[in-house]
Design a protein around this nucleic acid. Structure first.
Length: 545
RNA sequence: CGGGAUGUAGCGUAGCCCGGUAUCGCGCCACAUUUGGGAUGUGGAGGCCGCAGGUUCGAAUCCUGCCAUCCCGACCA
């Protein structure tokens, strides 16, 4: 069955080893109906003869050719995930899940270091809970999966059908987020200021019935963490919101090697039910922005909706102040899109499931034994430094095949050792990020590897940082704004008159949205690019995922 | 939900117009030779042709209905 991501239109892997820059392949004509956007890919899709660049050799289309397809190919071919029989839901395979586990481990520690504890709330939420906070239900109503029955039966013809007699009194919603059930619970936990703050996080799955889905970036079901805190004062809640944004930003930059802009959302883009939404925004290699994490100041909205009051120090009644904050498996999508290339994933060493892979090259068993002895020593030494090593001694695959496989999987460092090396006391060391190779001494190898991993981590960050710098532009006119979006998409820093109407019109006309109002913004006089009305600061626009 | 397209082996496909149980490549299995960038040879296995009806002596092919997926919109923290 043909599915997204497997449509590497007629790729014949063998043909792609040709040593000319392109090869030609006749494929079925696919006529596109939309001619509104005449661009390379439209022409490409209408072409009877397709040209594949040589780096199509792993069955991954070039990212310049078709960025979306490149992303899908990478996810599938690198063995991170696959499509499931359920629309919009994906199977996260062990390699992809192990990245999530690393993300979880690091963030979880960061949360605990700042005083948070984990708990778990139910997957199913009574429908009535959703009607309690007006803007919240508004925001989520259109994408909720609903449980209406609790039993199936056999209809007599061998078909399993829903038993209409088993209709639920009140429908249950599969959580799209847990504010409602959590605040309903907090009501019972909070009586006095002495019960505050409550600092709880949960690791969970949620479901949002999206119209269109994409692997890791927008799936109907996804994994995330959601923190829900309760405070006695607004100031404390705001401080919490900002603290969590700081943690997300720290994680993105120092672990994912992903530079992010910290900022606040405009009222239009705010979380349903929040007074203020803080976010981190990252720039992907195609010039589109990706919201990588959010932290919300919820004010007293949920406390009022669920009647969560507490007695203050001076014996008065007040509603509790709230925050919520989350990141999801979407981070994995960000990781892929920000760093990878046509040869496959490029993973930052700090989050790579395998940091170093060792590939032996040998002809006879005794050569392998010899190499294995050396690798055992190296592995042990690296383990004490916290470096994970995989020794791939499979004899069912040749070295070249393994090289290609680990490039595709984004393993940061590859060590190749053959008999020649064993004689010379050397190994061949290959970096995934720069695709460079060097022959180095076996003496001091572990130290060298440790230093290299750090250098790779830094280099990946620097590369992404420079890319963002090159693709962030200050624009002062609407003409320039529109031209940049088409010619060099990226972050556009521009003046805006502060009204939702202007924001909306720009969105309708250009598909660009205000990603955020950066926290470190400097104030400057200017004129709104659309209306010419006065403005006091620039905001960050982009087309976004 | 609107517009368009597509479902044939694990993957990518040919065949469909013009009805006769399915083509090719990759992958898979066995053996042999190989192993410093995706090995080669020989032999082999693998198919409710998306599902359900209908027409017919006979349906992957023609007709009807359904389902699923993808693309473009709309939608989306």
């Amino acid at each position: 069955m043909s599915r997204a991501g497997t449509q590497c239109k007629g790729t014949d892997e063998k043909n792609s080893y040709c040593n000319v820059p392109f090869h030609i392949q006749v494929v079925k004509v696919r006529v596109r109906i939309s001619f509104k956007f005449i661009n390379l890919s439209a022409i490409y899709n209408n072409c009877k003869v397709k040209f594949y660049p040589i780096n199509m050799s792993k069955g991954v289309i070039s990212k310049d050719e078709d960025y979306s397809q490149w992303f899908n190919d990478l996810v599938i071919k690198s063995d991170m995930a696959e499509y499931s029989p359920v629309r919009g839901c994906m199977i996260i395979k062990p390699y992809g899940y192990s990245i999530w586990e690393k993300i979880q481990a690091v963030l979880d520690q960061m949360f605990k270091d700042t005083g948070h504890s984990n708990a778990y709330f139910p997957l199913l939420i009574p429908k009535s809970f959703f009607s309690k906070e007006a803007s919240h239900v508004e925001g989520f109503a259109k994408e909720c999966a609903v449980v209406t029955h609790y039993r199936l039966k056999n209809d007599g013809d061998g078909n399993i059908i829903v038993d209409e007699d088993a209709k639920l009194e009140e429908e249950l919603i599969i959580r799209p987020t847990s504010e409602t059930i959590i605040w309903n619970t907090y009501k019972g936990w909070i009586q006095s200021y002495r019960d505050l703050p409550i600092l709880v996080n949960q690791w969970a799955n949620v479901m949002r019935w999206e119209m269109r889905t994409r692997l890791f970036l927008r799936t109907s079901e996804f994994l995330w963490q959601e923190g829900h805190t309760a405070h006695a004062t607004a100031d404390e809640a705001i401080a919490e919101t900002e603290q969590m944004l700081e943690i997300y930003s720290d994680f993105a930059e120092n672990w994912m090697a992903l530079p992010v802009v910290k900022g606040r959302k405009t009222p239009n883009e705010r979380f349903a039910g929040a007074l203020d939404t803080y976010c981190i925004e990252a720039l992907m290699q195609d010039g589109k922005a990706l919201q990588a994490g959010t932290s919300h100041f919820l004010g007293q909205n949920f406390a009022k909706a669920f009647d969560v009051k507490f007695t203050t120090r001076d014996n008065k009644q007040d509603f509790v102040w709230a925050t919520s904050w989350g990141v999801s498996t979407r981070l994995i999508g960000a990781l892929i899109m920000a760093h990878s290339d046509d040869a496959g994933l490029v993973l930052p060493p700090k989050l790579a499931p395998i940091q170093v892979v060792v590939v032996p090259i040998y002809k006879h068993q005794e050569e392998l034994d010899n190499i294995a002895t050396f690798v055992a020593g190296l592995t042990k030494e690296l383990k004490t430094k916290g470096v994970s090593v995989k020794f791939d001694k499979r004899d069912t695959h040749r070295p070249g095949a393994k090289f290609a496989e680990y490039e595709l999987k984004g393993v940061p460092l590859r060590v190749a050792i053959g008999s020649r090396d064993m004689q010379n006391g050397t190994v061949e060391l290959a970096r995934r990020d720069t695709k460079t190779k060097e022959t180095v001494n076996q003496d001091g190898l572990a130290l060298h590897i440790e230093a290299l991993l750090e250098e790779i981590q830094n280099n990946i960050y620097k590369k992404a940082f420079n890319f963002r710098a090159e693709n962030t532009t200050e624009v002062d006119t609407y003409e320039e704004f529109k031209r940049m979006l088409d010619e060099q998409p990226g972050f556009l820093s521009a003046h805006w008159d502060g009204t939702p109407e202007t924001e909306q019109r720009i969105k309708e006309e250009t598909k660009a949205t205000i990603r955020c109002i950066p926290l470190d913004n400097k104030l400057e006089e200017g004129k709104c690019i659309l209306t010419g009305k006065p403005s006091t600061q620039r905001v960050l626009f982009a087309r976004a995922y």
